[in-house]
Amino acid sequence: MASSPPRPGRDTRVARLPPRERILDAAEELFLREGIRAVGVQAIAEQAKTTKMALYRHFATKDALIEEWLRIVAAGYAAAFDGAETGHPGDGRAQVLAVARFIADGLPDIARRGCPFVNSIAGLPDRGHPARRLIEEHKATQLRRLTDMCRSAGARTPEGAAAEITFLMEGAQVSAQNGSVDRVGERLLTAVEAVLARAGAVGGR
């Protein structure tokens, strides 16, 4: 799903970060630009203006750094789901639309930098890799939460509606990343509303 928001004034901002945060910031910049497997620890250390030794004090291995970065990205999505639920208590339809808007709002950043999960999964062919498992667990949790929202909205088949909406949101991210479709955010919101209407989902009580 969507990437973290763009980070303005990177050079001056990064210089003020603690070492661990500088390393994570540098890793994100390089992983999104070049791919997680193409980037070495030395390049990350140089981007963070630190040393490999200092990097290894914070992260035992490069794989541990990849996993922590993806954990932070996943937490951003979890926070968006939390915000949709607290912002629209008891209104599953509004919750789903809030999540869809969060994805739509993040599409311009996806177009510039790519989706962290889409970009990373290609570099994680081992299904047992901790970072790969983190991505799969994150996606499964999101699907469960969307299903609960669709159920709260009164969808006749909440599992099916949630699967369709997930398909639309992830497809919108890929389309934004490769530039294959125009007005992706607008089309995503229209399509999600259509799924909810077809499923019989209604507003809050």
Score class of each variant (00 low, 15 high):
residue 75 A to H: 09
residue 77 Y to Q: 10
residue 32 L to F: 07
residue 136 E to V: 04
residue 122 A to N: 00
residue 128 G to E: 13
residue 32 L to Y: 02
residue 131 A to H: 08
residue 35 G to D: 09
residue 74 A to G: 05
residue 46 E to K: 09
residue 83 G to N: 10
residue 120 S to A: 15
residue 82 D to K: 04
residue 37 R to F: 05
residue 115 C to P: 07
residue 138 H to G: 07
residue 88 H to Q: 11
residue 109 D to H: 11
residue 77 Y to F: 08
residue 123 G to L: 04
residue 100 A to C: 03
residue 111 A to V: 12
residue 53 M to G: 11
residue 146 L to C: 02
residue 75 A to F: 02
residue 99 V to H: 12
residue 122 A to W: 08
residue 129 H to V: 09
residue 66 I to R: 04
residue 133 R to A: 08
residue 35 G to C: 07
residue 64 A to Q: 14
residue 113 R to G: 09
residue 60 A to V: 07
residue 146 L to R: 08
residue 96 V to K: 09
residue 33 R to D: 09
residue 95 Q to A: 03
residue 132 R to W: 02
residue 80 A to M: 13
residue 35 G to F: 04
residue 77 Y to N: 08
residue 120 S to L: 00
residue 134 L to T: 07
residue 108 P to Y: 09
residue 71 R to H: 10
residue 106 G to F: 01
residue 103 I to R: 00
residue 56 Y to F: 14
residue 71 R to I: 01
residue 147 T to M: 10
residue 95 Q to G: 05
residue 75 A to T: 07
residue 81 F to L: 13
residue 131 A to E: 04
residue 66 I to E: 02
residue 108 P to C: 07
residue 36 I to C: 05
residue 93 R to M: 08
residue 48 A to N: 08
residue 104 A to G: 11
residue 113 R to Y: 14
residue 102 F to C: 09
residue 80 A to N: 02
residue 118 V to F: 14
residue 31 F to S: 02
residue 124 L to H: 06
residue 79 A to S: 10
residue 54 A to D: 01
residue 54 A to I: 01
residue 112 R to Q: 13
residue 68 E to V: 06
residue 98 A to I: 06
residue 134 L to A: 12
residue 105 D to Q: 11
residue 42 Q to K: 13
residue 119 N to A: 10
residue 87 G to Y: 06
residue 141 T to F: 11
residue 115 C to W: 09
residue 71 R to S: 12
residue 53 M to Q: 11
residue 54 A to H: 03
residue 85 E to N: 02
residue 48 A to E: 01
residue 79 A to E: 15
